[in-house]
């Protein structure tokens, strides 16, 4: 309990540091959302100054930060200049979409990585293991951008999957089952791309963790008792190999989030990625800060979840 209280305090401090850093970085960028309006002769400088004052942009950075922080405690992430609406509801919809994408991709990546890594470990040094090694090493060298563009090209050429958005134009006319099917069809390509992008290191880690455990004397002892090989793998080796993999799960959230921003932009998935790019270009500062904070929250939550899993899986953690 004490451990989790400590982790929670650390996470809060980390989020606080990220927010200060984001505010500082955005302050360094020249101009603001209203600066391009000065080029329009029909908008007077008084109007622009009034708009800046309305949104508090004329105040000093610490004052704005304190105001924003007070708002955060009341679930108000500030206003979006471009959308002319509060940031929080805007982010909520996008966050849901990003979570759907990353959650699906993460599950897909681990569902492939665990059996593939185990299979490679069992067939260590044989041609099948080497082939898996060549494929995963090859995938590591392919930049995510190229991978997503190739997937997009294949989807466009074959027409097997929709290549943009999250739903079809006629989504509202569909029944529940067809709605689910429609979202799944739109989700397939970005989720597959994201899973492939994060898969290679996962497979290599599962393989090496399994090899290490399979060579441990306690596994040899179990074999000397006549245990079936399948039971060795699933009942003995996998639970012990799980510890480093759970820690890796926490780290993979970060990889997944950064790759998801790219895949969302390229495959037009309406998550926080395209929102962030648009907001950066338009200098819609509160949306940028909100998006960065949301990504940080996902990251911290992913690591906290990994810690919880480790706590549940490793009895040594509970005793320490």
């Amino acid at each position: 309990m004490k451990y989790f209280a400590r982790r929670l305090v650390h996470s809060t401090l980390l989020l606080l540091a990220v927010s200060i850093f984001s505010f500082g970085i955005l302050q360094l960028a020249p101009g603001d959302f209203f600066a391009p309006m000065g080029l329009n002769p029909q908008i007077s400088s008084r109007t622009i100054a009034a708009l800046r004052s309305q949104y508090g942009l004329d105040r000093s950075l610490p004052v704005r930060y304190a105001h924003w922080l007070r708002g955060v405690l009341k679930a108000d992430l500030g206003p979006s200049f471009a959308y002319n609406s509060p940031v929080a509801p805007l982010l909520a919809v996008r966050a849901r979409n990003t979570l759907l994408l990353t959650g699906t991709a993460m599950s897909l990546a681990w569902l492939i990585a665990i059996p593939l890594g185990m299979w490679s470990a069992v067939h260590r040094g044989k041609w099948a293991d080497r082939a898996a090694g060549v494929v995963t090493s090859g995938l590591v060298t392919v930049p995510d951008l190229v991978l997503f563009l190739v997937l997009l090209l294949v989807a466009v050429r074959t027409g097997w999957f929709p290549t943009g958005g999250m739903v079809s134009a006629a989504f509202s006319d569909l029944n529940v089952w067809n709605k689910v099917k429609d979202v799944a069809e739109h989700l397939f390509l970005p989720a597959l791309g994201l899973a492939i992008a994060t898969l290679p290191p996962l497979v290599r880690h599962v393989r090496s963790a399994m090899i290490e455990v399979l060579e441990a004397p306690f596994i040899r002892a179990a074999r000397a008792h006549g245990i079936a090989e399948r039971r060795v793998l699933f009942r003995y080796a996998l639970p012990v190999a799980a510890n480093p993999l759970i820690s890796l799960f926490g780290l993979s959230v970060a990889t997944m989030l950064s790759a998801s921003l790219l895949v969302e932009v390229i495959l037009s998935w309406p998550g926080i990625g395209p929102l962030l790019v648009d907001a950066i270009l338009a200098k819609d500062v509160y949306v940028v800060i909100g998006t960065v904070m949301l990504s940080s929250v996902f990251l911290v939550a992913g690591n906290l979840f990994a810690d919880l899993l480790l706590f549940a899986a490793d009895p040594r953690m509970r005793t320490e």
Partner: peptide, 23 residues
Amino acid sequence: ALFLFRRRMQMIFQDPASALNPG
């Protein structure tokens, strides 16, 4: 048959720390 015979011969390893399932 070997499964039944395995019980008659057991092995004790060098490092007791790694010879026991940690879980």
